[in-house]
């Protein structure tokens, strides 16, 4: 076999260049936005008519590994967008629950990650534990908590986890809360529905309000079963 290595080497080089030339797409910030929802298929949403929405957002951080800086200035916008979407879908808002009573069919909790969650299957055990339940649900009696981990029933998100800046909109059926028999260190709250806008509050972006509006609206748009 005779050899013609210069030509051959040139072809190899051209092939290598072709492959290394932007084989991956460059995504803009907006193109990385993800709206994700999950619901309990056995839940009859027509039975749920009223909601309670706390006007605060919980920022979930990690004291051990440190937390990233997340924009807190959008709280009012987030709360108003969530409230308006529920109202637009025909829900009735209950304000000021009475002590010890659960007046609303569901409670809506808003939270934002200031730390990455790497293992979503442990996610509920981990980050729900951070919730200051005694502050969040002051009307809820002492015998069950505060500080107990909560186990919603449907922990089946992608396993890669969720990143800093993710906004969670969680629907809790507090009337369905259960204390596992023989275990007074934890209790379980059903979550008929939950939505998330992934990583949306991370970093700085001049179009943040527009992106927030789009993603929060999308979370509801892709959940037609919530419509009354």
């Amino acid at each position: 076999m005779n050899r013609n290595y210069p030509i051959f080497a040139l072809l190899l080089f051209v092939s290598a260049v072709l492959f290394s030339c932007h084989p991956e797409y460059d995504a803009t910030v907006e193109e990385l936005d993800v709206a994700i929802t999950q619901y309990d298929e056995e839940q009859d949403f027509s039975q749920l008519q009223t909601f309670y929405l706390e006007d605060s957002i919980i920022y979930i951080n990690d004291e051990e590994s440190g937390s990233a800086s997340v924009d807190h200035s959008q709280n009012d916008l987030i709360v108003s967008l969530v409230r308006q979407n529920f109202l637009d879908m025909g829900w009735t808002e209950v304000t000021g629950p009475t002590d010890g009573e659960m007046d609303a069919d569901v409670s809506i909790m808003l939270s934002v990650l200031e730390t990455d969650l790497s293992f979503y299957y442990y996610y509920w055990w981990d980050w729900w534990y951070w919730y200051p339940w005694d502050w969040w649900y002051p009307w809820y009696g002492d015998p069950w908590y505060p500080g107990y981990p909560v186990w919603p029933g449907y922990p089946t998100y992608p396993s890669q986890g969720y990143t800093v800046g993710t906004l969670f909109i969680d629907m809790l059926d507090m009337n369905g809360a259960e204390m596992p028999e023989g275990d007074d260190s934890s209790f379980k709250v059903p979550m008929p529905w939950k939505g998330a806008a992934i990583g949306i509050l991370a970093g700085s972006d001049t179009f943040l309000q527009q992106r927030l509006t789009n993603e929060i609206n999308q979370v509801f748009k892709q959940s037609p079963y919530l419509q009354k």
Binding site: E24, Y25, L32, V34, I36, T37, Q38, Y154
Partner: peptide, 19 residues
């Protein structure tokens, strides 16, 4: 381009980059 799709029991709306 951004579209809604399903993965397991999740509903996801996003731009997809497929390879």
């Amino acid at each position: 381009p951004e579209e809604t799709f399903y993965h397991n029991d999740l509903t996801i709306t996003a731009v997809q980059f497929r390879y």
